[in-house]
Nucleic acid binder design. Structure first.
Lengths: 222, 222
DNA sequence: TTTTTATCGATAAAAAAATATCGATAAAAA
DNA sequence: TTTTTATCGATATTTTTTTATCGATAAAAA
């Protein structure tokens, strides 16, 4: 009678942290239960969609009352395995790398960068937010010794594939890639590509359509 | 006979910058034309999908040869309006804000942050990458005077809505939101939410499933 | 206690996106 | 010149995701 492995749609996975973060803030106001209607109102989403998303975490709501916020938060933590902290390595301590190191919010999601690597000797040895930057050569060895399973790539495009190979060699199974490169990984390794330009592209296209549509007049006649 | 406004699927919009970036690097190698098969091979995507995506930009390929890379790049630039630089304002000069200021890559996408704002007096007056940080009070006025249409929000959750309101008041029509908040905007304003936790959630869930599936044995017997 | 109402859960329908198929065509090879 | 091959563009199919519908149920009100 063990829990069946169901496939969860990726859009749902992407929305769940949103609910989680929102529910944390609602809980802080002292409220104990909340309905999908209410969540949808605050988050600009349709209630049925929220209900469906939440159903994947295995939680049940109650008519007329909604969901127990605390139970719901626990369900989400269980669902993602955020109860135990996943330690991760970061490679590439440039702008994005530093921002990730400085970003406090990850701990909430059971994610913590425990070491950073770079090839630039002027950066190696420095510390950012208590994380020391080590020479890249030490990566594979440390990976396997510390049994790290998540790696973050924030290098330039050309370095990305090589870094990924070294990570995999060291036993890393999930790669969060911020480099604008298509990294190839063997089966059994998960790669999640993050691409800032994607969001910008969507915004700028929509904006362009809006401007063209004529609904918007830039000229303000004084 | 003007160009019809067709709806472009969002996943396509998100993939197009990927092709753009890739094609730039291929062009640099001296190659002149490329086929979808080739692109798909390098980018780990299915050729028919690439063909479909590229078709939205209005370009035509040629059997046996593929697409002219330079023409394709121009089509993409036209499509997104990357020929002229869009100036944007940034509010919130924390970790993410600074990373965005430092990020050089945006220029390629016709996007440039020309001024930054913060409410913290210790940050106001400082400069990051030639962008001066101004007091938040100056935002609405400067917006309309400079006719800025894109705003980037990198503030805390609680400040986000107020900042958005000020931006809209100043005439901003597109908001790129990095704050973990559900900002409400009137019709005629585009909001694009960026959420780092989303990508992390997808990665950690997939990784969790991988580990559970038993295909992966962590123990290495020496 | 009975009625009303909010809200859930499940199911169904619709829309969107990804994937596969296939004829057409241009270049290269025979 | 004819044949072959790579690759396109268009169409069709399948899958995925979103949106809508509706009966059931628990709490609150009458």
């Amino acid at each position: 009678m063990n829990k069946q492995i169901v496939h969860v749609p990726e859009p749902t996975l992407r929305r769940l942290p949103l609910y989680y973060h929102y529910l944390k803030t609602v809980l802080a106001t002292g409220r104990e239960a909340i309905s999908c209607t209410h969540i949808g109102n605050d988050l600009n989403l349709d209630p049925p969609q929220i209900r469906k998303d939440l159903a994947y975490t295995g939680i049940r709501g109650m008519p007329k009352v909604g969901y127990q916020i605390e139970t719901l938060l626990n369900s989400l933590e269980d669902f993602f395995g955020w109860n135990r902290i996943d330690e991760a390595f970061l490679v590439g301590v440039g702008n994005i790398g530093k921002a990730l190191l400085k970003y406090e919010g990850f701990k909430r999601y059971g994610f913590k960068i425990v070491a950073a690597f770079d090839k630039d000797p002027t950066i190696v040895g420095q510390s950012f937010c208590d994380v020391k930057v080590l020479p890249i050569e030490k990566l594979p060895n440390l990976c396997s010794r510390m049994k790290i399973k998540i790696g973050v790539i924030a290098t330039s495009e050309n370095a990305a594939q090589e870094v990924a190979d070294q990570m995999i060699e060291g036993g890393i199974r999930g790669i969060w890639n911020f480099a604008p490169a298509a990294i190839k990984v063997p089966e059994g390794v998960i790669i999640q590509n993050e691409n800032l330009a994607a969001g910008l592209a969507v915004l700028s296209k929509k904006l362009q359509l809006l401007m063209q549509s004529g609904k918007f007049r830039q000229e303000v006649v004084k």
